[in-house]
Write a protein that binds this DNA or RNA. Sequence first.
DNA 1: AGGGATACTATACTTACGTATGGGTGCTCT
DNA 2: AGAGCACCCATACGTAAGTATAGTATCCCT
Lengths: 233, 233
Amino acid sequence: MSRQLPARQRDVLNAIVELSEQCGYPPTLQELATHLGLKNRMTIHQHVSALKKKELVLWEPKLNRSMRVSSEGLRLLNLDNESNDSHLRAVPFSEAAPEEDAAEADAQPVGVPLAGRIAAGAPIDAFETPEFLTMESDYAQRGCFALEVKGDSMIEDGIYSGDYVIIKPSPSPTNGEIVVALLEDGSATLKRFYKENGGFRLQPGNSSMEPIFVSRASDLQIQGVVVGLFRKM
Amino acid sequence: MSRQLPARQRDVLNAIVELSEQCGYPPTLQELATHLGLKNRMTIHQHVSALKKKELVLWEPKLNRSMRVSSEGLRLLNLDNESNDSHLRAVPFSEAAPEEDAAEADAQPVGVPLAGRIAAGAPIDAFETPEFLTMESDYAQRGCFALEVKGDSMIEDGIYSGDYVIIKPSPSPTNGEIVVALLEDGSATLKRFYKENGGFRLQPGNSSMEPIFVSRASDLQIQGVVVGLFRKM
DNA sequence: AGGGATACTATACTTACGTATGGGTGCTCT
DNA sequence: AGAGCACCCATACGTAAGTATAGTATCCCT
């Protein structure tokens, strides 16, 4: 098992993600240091170097703000935030950094310009709502992952084969949510989740398919709930 | 009309977008300069300052790589790339920059980790496909915008009310594509586009609705074609 | 003809970023 | 006890980035 990341390195990884998300661009070593309450950049330099060697972080030497968390790095964070929910945020000694985070000021979402609303028959408010539609900014950096859908089990909910569903890891969904369920035989499906009569019902969104009933919780493992859907056309 | 952006400023705006996209982080003034074939950063500094004053660019003074194109800036680029297709790429004097772009090397997409494929009944390849699902990185920075859908005109194509469609501006779609059509009466709809018999047919994806026929091209304006769909759940 | 906007250049200063060097403490393992 | 790791610190250096100042050339406008 190649996993066994030192606690502080995971904190750093987390901080990179957080700061990148907040500012729209990756942090510098100094910003990371003050964010984590450290007095010296060199400490961060060592940690990030270690993370780079493990290929959890992409980092061009000598290049300002070139840090990015790799695919593996993000997945590792997902897993950790899931299983280890009692873990404290970060910030080792001083709970709040003494001076305010300079980087924390100008948070602004990155996204696709949201031009307006298109109604069937009604006029379009062309370019009147200058907002952003944020997609991966909301999900990518924090806990979520994507799955490609194969099959028609949720077609009546507008989830088609070939779509991508965004999954937020959550072992205990509420009734009616669409979940990724891992069954006892090792198969995984996308179904609507209902807890009832002491058991569970997994309801497909396809009237030609039958619901699945699971009585024992140990036979059912919920990987997460669907929080978004994306389709390339 | 507040629009009338000097040609070179739009080039700079474009370059910011391109380089950001390529590297995953915003460029420096120097990188922009060499990318545009300029010998001195100061030129870029002036242009970006102008862009900042017009609020087309967000830029923290003295902060490395803190440039970002604003909402207005992106929209402006969309419009320009659309209407002014004869415009040359950039690069004023020397067509190709003499030295290779240092920033151009390590392009790597940013996105949601794509964990695997979920099949109805088949086992999930849990965490075996370490790729990324890129969403706004593919669209945001280059020409596309989003619209929120209201109505059921495309429900049989899995586009529901409340979804967001990603639109790529394109005045001349090919048959069968889903387009945003602006009709002569000022209304806008989402329909499938067919050019036939010298006229146009706009086919809803809803069998309880009738297609719209338009005979004169001047009565129909295509805002763009749907290249993606996004749903928050 | 003059004013102004656009566009580019050169030189030089200041700062902050990345990095090298050299320590320090506490823990675990053998 | 010593080796090794995780974790932190301070100092110092080279360089690249942002910026201030100053100057040139072209074009358009009234």
